[in-house]
Nucleic acid binder design. Structure first.
Length: 773
RNA sequence: GGGCUCGUAGUCUAGCUCGGUUAUGACGUCGCCUUUACAUGGCGAAGAUCCGGUGUUCAAAUCACCGCGGGCCCA
């Protein structure tokens, strides 16, 4: 019989047609039912080209979660969203058009951002689709849509009414490049070379010289005290005495404090508002009055005297010169200093007192820990990231940002008495341009208002993703049937932010946890194990890789190469070489396609053996799938298909399948078993490589999609796995002997079938053309 | 400084829970082979101080302890 499959290899170009067919058949459309499995899909941020190959791999695996659930009989809701709020697009737009946000009309700037996002988003959607994501693309949402922003504002108004939002002036992490406050979670630390300046302070009474080392001499004008360790004998007689600050000639006290390290610098430390977080803690503890030395424009203020208007770095250079000229410097060391940077703009943050809105979180920490305990983490070890973070939270969450491209904080202020007005939910508010919905101020009756200009931290938007996709407050039935959602898949670097904030917000709004499971993925690194970045030039663009090798190859690589939760290395060569397995699967199928698909036959001992191995494979795969660990099924299937099914069983059963020297019933047993095994492999593999399995399934077995099938169940065939090695050893022995004797594989040879394999004797004699004994 | 986590060929990985073969398989490398559905293949080879040390034991990749190294987080 001619094989139904003629082509000699799987052609990834077929994927496109399969995609179109799925779309036409509405295969993955979601209809609400009582058995919903909701995925809180991470909405990717279109930050620029190329998209990260690690992220593409994340999404491929998230799709495997969806397909696994679908093939386990669940009604899968797999929403697709795009995260479009926040700083990166503002920076991208400024650079692209050579403009500055604050010097551009706000409405115009927002329009430019929106256009940039549309471009970047289109490519991302294309990659996600071509990866075979079985998500709800038709209803994909954007976090900057009126609908979403209205929703974010509603949740804010709700929290405002609950009294968990407040205004406070606090030293804040301030990123002066992006001109906004940032949360602790957005700070990254880097070792940066800097100068440690040993300055000469003078004691007021005795005119004795005291050396104080600092990396921030420009903050001399904001120095309010000098601390020394109480155990430091060098200074014990000076505690409580006054020092003259160089250049400014102000007087400050020497205070004992345990945080002064005896061995660092000279042991005496100047405390300024604010050099670092430690200064903040000391100012609070010692109740010092702060001096604002750096303004919101990132430049020195008038308290800096002649240094006013300079950037801190410029001021530092100048002040070091001046100190040197005045002979007030003992020495200068070049050191490497662990500097806090803004994660987004990568510039050193300053600590500046500012009035911002806060969301209370400190009083929820115990509750959060409890919820964290209840949520199942895959892999479990990453739960620790959340727990450690919960342990270290010390201040409430600052939620206001001085940026443009974000959800506006829906507040107006009375021009007369400054009383804030928060409108009713139900509308998208833009206070920077909309008229205040209140006729007059409730407090003073004034009718003039000023709109709030700030926006929310983007995590305020993305932290309600599980509520948005389940239609919280908008469709009660839908919400009831989909929330709490089943699973939150995400990357491990945003556990402290996205995962935590979602937990916090959803609990505050619904009293429940947002998901019962969290699935945490590692980073994609380059082939040497370095972090990929556009600036280093080691980033791999996923689009050409997928176009060249095909989505299934990429997906199988992702599944078989990445250990759950661990960082992984990406190399194009390795991805491409994964394709060999798909070729193998293709050719196995091509061979089987020359035999009719039949319902039954007389099962021989070798058939029972492969069916028992197949049972084992099913168990292993289902175990792996149940833990969302795709490494387990992908490697098990490859191993079984290649080394057991193709290399051993097909060879053993081939002669019987051709029916030479066997009865029709015996022949049918082989053909039945061959198809049984292949069709099972295809179903087991379908969540990982949906395209090739669909193509082969429909060519060989059914008009219907394989993705409507359920994962196969085991049939409890008697275990014969002890035979596997014996068979493969015997076969290798015969093949090797023929090779040594320079015989063709078809030639006959005299080798006895060992007693242990006597049950397979007939198949083995036919397979190797053994001289009967 | 503290916490978490990991350490098996160039790379990914199995084995570790519950100690016992010649340490599994794949990618890559090298050699041979038109030979079967598949040269996108087959056969074979080289490649591992199982991070190190000590202890327990007849026996340690596996158990215990002490180190070392990487990554992430916090200070």
């Amino acid at each position: 019989m001619e094989p139904k499959i003629a082509e000699k290899a799987w052609d990834p170009k077929l994927e496109n047609a399969i995609l179109k067919k799925w779309e036409k058949e509405k295969l993955y459309d979601f209809q609400l039912s009582d058995n919903n499995y909701t995925i809180d899909t991470p909405p990717p941020y279109p930050s620029g080209r190329p998209w990260h190959i690690g992220a593409a791999s994340h999404y491929a695996q998230i799709d495997m979660i969806a397909r696994t659930a679908r093939m386990s009989g669940k009604n899968v809701y797999f929403p697709i969203g795009i995260d479009r709020n926040g700083l990166p697009v503002e920076l991208y737009t400024e650079k692209k058009h050579g403009i500055r946000m604050r010097e551009t009309e706000r409405g115009e700037f927002l329009e430019l951002c929106k256009n940039a996002l549309d471009d970047l988003e289109a490519e991302m959607i294309q990659i996600m689709k071509s990866l075979g994501l079985s998500g709800d693309f038709k209803n994909y949402y954007r976090t900057d849509s009126e609908d979403y922003r209205k929703f974010t504002q509603e949740t804010f108004i709700d929290l405002w009414k609950k009294g968990v939002i407040y205004l406070a002036t606090r030293p804040n992490n301030y990123d002066w490049v992006s001109g906004t406050t940032i949360a602790d979670a957005e700070i990254v630390y880097e070792e940066i070379p800097t100068k440690l300046v040993y300055m000469k302070f003078i004691t007021k009474e005795t005119k004795k010289e005291i050396i104080i080392a600092s990396t921030r001499p420009e903050l001399l004008c904001a120095c309010k005290t000098v601390i020394v360790n109480p155990n430091d004998e060098r200074y014990s007689d000076l505690i409580g005495k006054e020092l003259i600050v160089p250049l400014t000639n102000r007087e400050v006290k020497i205070t004992p404090h345990h945080s002064a390290k005896i061995e660092f610098g000279s042991g005496a430390v100047m405390v300024c508002s604010y050099g670092d977080q430690n200064d903040v803690a000391l100012f609070r503890e010692l109740q010092l009055g702060e001096v604002i030395a750096i303004g919101l424009d990132g430049r020195m203020t008038e308290v800096a005297g002649e240094y006013q208007g300079l950037k801190p770095k410029q001021a530092r250079t100048k002040i070091i010169e001046d100190l040197k000229n005045a002979n007030l410097v003992e020495k200068i060391e070049d050191i490497s200093h662990r500097t806090p940077l803004s994660e987004r703009s990568k510039t050193p943050i300053e600590i500046v007192p500012m009035e911002e809105y806060y969301l209370k979180q400190k009083d929820s920490l115990e509750k959060m820990k409890k919820l964290g305990e209840e949520i199942e983490f895959y892999p479990n070890m990453h739960k620790q990231i959340l727990m450690n973070w919960l342990e270290s939270i010390s201040i409430d969450w600052p939620i206001s940002r001085r940026r443009f491209y974000g959800t506006e904080i829906p507040i107006w202020y009375c021009n007369e008495c400054s009383e804030p007005f928060v409108p009713e939910p139900g509308k998208y508010y833009r206070p920077w341009k909309d008229k205040c919905p209140a006729g007059k101020c409730e407090k003073c009756g004034n009718t003039e208002f000023t709109g709030e200009e700030r926006t929310f931290d983007t995590w305020m938007d993305s932290s309600v993703s599980p509520l948005f996709v389940t239609k919280f407050n908008r469709d009660e039935e839908f919400f009831k049937k989909t929330y709490p959602t089943a699973i939150r898949p995400q990357a491990k670097d945003i556990v402290r932010t996205w995962l935590y904030y979602t937990l916090l917000r959803c609990e505050k709004l619904t009293g429940e946890k947002p998901w019962s499971e969290a699935w945490i993925m590692g980073y994609g690194l380059d082939e040497k194990g370095m972090k990929m970045s556009k600036s280093k030039g080691n980033a791999i663009d996923p689009l050409p890789v997928i176009e060249k090798s095909g989505a299934d190859t990429f997906r199988f690589w992702s599944a078989s190469e990445i250990n759950q939760g661990y960082d992984f290395r990406c190399s194009e060569q390795k991805i491409e070489s994964t394709r060999k397995f798909l070729s193998k699967l293709w050719n196995v199928s091509r061979f089987l396609s020359s035999f009719p698909v039949i319902k039954s036959g007389q099962i021989s001992e070798s058939d029972k053996w492969i069916l028992s191995e197949l049972d084992k494979l099913i168990s292993v795969c289902k175990e792996g799938y149940s833990k969302y660990n795709f490494f387990i099924p992908s490697t098990a299937i490859r191993e079984f298909t290649w080394n057991i099914f193709a290399a051993q069983y097909i060879e053993i059963a081939k002669a019987r399948a051709y029916g030479i020297g066997f009865t029709d019933e015996e022949r049918d047993g082989a053909i039945f078993t061959l198809h049984k095994v292949l069709s099972t492999i295809l179903k087991l593999l379908a969540p990982i490589t949906p395209f090739i399995t669909e193509h082969l399934w429909q060519t060989l077995y059914s008009q219907d999609s394989i993705h409507k099938e359920n994962l196969p169940d085991i049939e409890n065939v008697d275990d014969m796995s002890e035979m596997t090695q014996l068979l493969s050893e015997f076969n290798s022995k015969v093949w090797n002997e023929k090779k040594q004797k320079e015989l063709s594989l078809k030639d006959s040879i005299k080798i006895d079938v060992p007693e242990t394999l006597s049950q397979f004797k007939k198949d083995l004699i036919a397979m190797h053309n053994l001289e009967s004994n």
